[in-house]
């Protein structure tokens, strides 16, 4: 099975459409004929063993990776080599990284206000108010004048979430946001992500946090060797996997 469309019963207006996507790194076929449609406000969790192409897939959505075949349409704009289209799509999508990637030479507040000021041309005062609004939402307003290096991993990832939100994106992409964190910090980041999900944000999330997938996801997509093996609602996915490969993966990730 290589198609993963939104189930008919809760059909939404689609915001990301990927069809017939193929990508190679040199001779290595990293994404094989991917078809995926994500509706507005939908939460999709992508999981799979390492090297299955899940990170590459979501990095294709904001063109951090280029694809060789197939179509990616984000918010009605098709991704091509056209820089204007790429910029437009990147402004509508926020992305979270495993290593946070905050700008270390700026304070937390500057990290948050820089992009709204320079990319969205927002006045300084307004950008600051916005930054504090989101810092409060991720529960760390007191860190505004610290440097990223002075914050813990969990705090840095929450700052990174706030930094994305300051650009008011329509879609959030998460590339293993909790993989570099201590167990105690994972929870504080997941809490923020759950809160974000409940606000109706469209989220595509590569993660190994199966608890998060179970509670938040509308759909779980399982990938292996560059293909989508299956995509289902979490209930069916966890309790009644369609393929033995999925069952094997689940048994390895859950019972150990």
């Amino acid at each position: 099975m290589t198609t993963a469309t939104t189930p008919e019963k809760n059909k939404r207006e689609s915001i990301v459409t990927i069809s017939g996507l193929n990508k190679w790194f040199g001779d290595f076929h990293v994404l094989k004929n991917i078809n995926l449609e994500v509706g507005k406000g939908e939460k999709v969790v992508v999981c799979g063993p390492s090297g299955s192409g899940k990170s590459t897939l979501i990095r294709c959505i904001n063109r951090l990776e280029t694809h060789q075949q197939g179509k990616i349409i984000v918010d009605g704009v098709e991704l091509t080599n056209d820089v204007k289209r790429i910029d437009k799509i990147r402004r509508e999508t926020g992305m979270l990284f495993q290593n946070f990637n905050l700008f270390p030479h700026m304070t937390v507040l500057e990290n948050l206000t820089l992009s709204p000021i320079w990319i969205r041309k927002m006045p300084l005062k307004e950008a600051r108010e916005l930054a504090f609004h989101y810092l409060e939402r991720v529960k760390i307003p007191d860190l505004a004048n610290k440097y990223p290096g002075q914050c813990s991993g969990g705090q840095q990832q929450r700052i990174a979430i706030a930094r994305c939100l300051c650009m008011s994106p329509k879609i959030m992409l998460f590339d293993e946001p909790t993989s570099a964190l201590d167990p105690e910090m994972i929870k504080e980041v997941l809490d923020v992500m759950v809160d974000l999900a409940s606000s109706g944000m469209t989220m595509i999330c590569v993660t190994h946090e199966m608890g998060f997938a179970r509670t938040v996801a509308d759909r779980v997509v399982f990938m292996d060797t560059g293909e989508i093996v299956e995509a289902n609602d979490p209930e069916t996915f966890f309790n009644n996997p369609q393929y033995d490969r999925t069952a094997l993966f689940l048994s390895q990730i859950i019972n150990h």
């Binding site: 951090l64 990147r90 992305m95 990284f97 990637n101 030479h105 990319i119």
Partner: peptide, 24 residues
């Protein structure tokens, strides 16, 4: 990651270089 974070936020090349990469 610094380039990727900046690009993901929609920074064009020259702005990214002059405000994020070159200062570092």
């Amino acid at each position: 990651g610094q380039y990727e974070a900046a690009m993901a936020l929609g920074w064009p090349y020259w702005k990214m270089m002059s405000l994020i990469i070159i200062p570092q």
